[in-house]
């Protein structure tokens, strides 16, 4: 399901941004069109690159696609589930990042090097925060598999969920290269991170990269929605619908943030992430069996 629906979330964001800008905006399914078009094109490879450059996009789709198998959607449980699967989930996204970065470095371009450097910096700070958010959820649900984490039964504490949710939203923006951390719209400024890393990819490779980023955004949004949507509807269909609605709202939120905020200076980003970390620690401490 995620494999099909993921690019639609990009459409929601684009429509929201268009709404704020007073434009009509691209069609809702534009990301699908983009990917389809890219897949039909030929490719250009730099003479500097090696097989690593070509392996990058393939591994990205592989890792992001595999991560989709671990995450439940509403009451639709994940196909693969075991204690600690959230760790594998996290590290699969790590593999994706590793390969995006080394594929970028393979071009030998200073632009891509710069983007890669920032990517590893910010994600190194974001990773523990993401884990702390998950831990706060794990502490209140007493489970360490994504299926259990995301089927939290009442009594569910609102305070930690809100704190962790806020923290997670920052991580979502940071990991998916959205404003205020990165600007997905620019292509050739020295300020950007993710877009510059994939500058030399073209054709199907770039299509894979775009698809991989859609999947990643989808996954983070899903974790975010489940974090703030703690109740369990009795009818399974309702729950799935609610989750879908939540995804839509998340998309609108991301779009809103992008429309009303400017990109932060790069030096400020670590502070933003540190703030998210503080929120996550608070969420962990104020969870069930609270120490505070």
């Amino acid at each position: 399901m995620a494999l099909i629906c993921a690019p639609a979330l990009m459409g929601v964001i684009a429509k929201t941004k268009a709404f704020f800008a007073g434009r009509k905006g691209p069609p809702f399914l534009q990301t699908y069109y983009d990917i389809a078009k890219l897949l039909r094109k030929g490719a250009v490879y730099s003479t500097t690159t090696s097989w690593v450059f070509k392996a990058g996009p393939v591994v990205c789709v592989g890792a992001a696609g595999a991560a989709c198998f671990f995450i439940p959607f509403g009451t639709l449980g994940a196909p693969i589930s075991f204690t600690g699967d959230v760790v594998l989930f996290m590290y699969l996204l790590g593999v994706m990042r590793f390969f995006t970065v080394i594929a970028a470095l393979d071009t030998g371009s200073a632009f891509e090097g710069m983007g890669a450097s920032r990517e590893v910096f910010f994600s190194a700070l974001a990773e523990p925060v993401f884990l702390l958010c998950i831990l706060s959820l794990a502490r209140s649900t007493q489970g360490f598999r994504l299926n259990e984490l995301f089927s939290a039964a009442p009594p569910f504490h609102m305070a930690p969920a809100l704190l962790a949710g806020a923290s997670l939203f920052v991580i979502l923006l940071a990991e998916n290269a959205r404003i205020p951390v990165d600007d997905p719209a620019t292509h050739l400024e020295l300020t950007m991170i993710h877009e510059v890393m994939v500058l030399d990819h073209s054709g199907p490779d770039f299509g894979f990269i775009t698809y991989g980023s859609c999947l990643k955004l989808w996954l983070f949004a899903l974790v975010f929605v489940r974090m703030l949507l703690p109740f369990h509807a009795t009818a399974p269909g309702v729950d799935v619908l609610l989750t879908a609605l939540g995804m839509g709202i998340t998309g609108v939120c991301v779009g809103t943030v992008e429309s009303v905020m400017a990109r932060l200076r790069l030096l400020r980003v670590p502070q933003l992430l540190a703030g998210a970390a503080a929120l996550a620690v608070l969420a962990l401490l104020s969870g069930e069996g609270a120490i505070l």
Binding site: L39, R40, K41, G42, A43, V44, Y45, S46, T47, T48, T49, P57, V58, V59, V61, G62, A63, G65, A66, F69, I80, L92, V95, T107, G108, S109, D200, G203, P204, D205, F208
Partner: peptide, 27 residues
């Protein structure tokens, strides 16, 4: 699953590129 999805992506990519000319140029 990871290797499987990656393999599928690899085959798709290969299929797509087999008909087209992959150009080479400097970075």
């Amino acid at each position: 699953v990871f290797l499987g999805v990656a393999a599928v992506a690899f085959i798709i990519r290969k299929g797509l590129l087999s008909k087209k000319r992959a150009a080479a140029s400097p970075t």
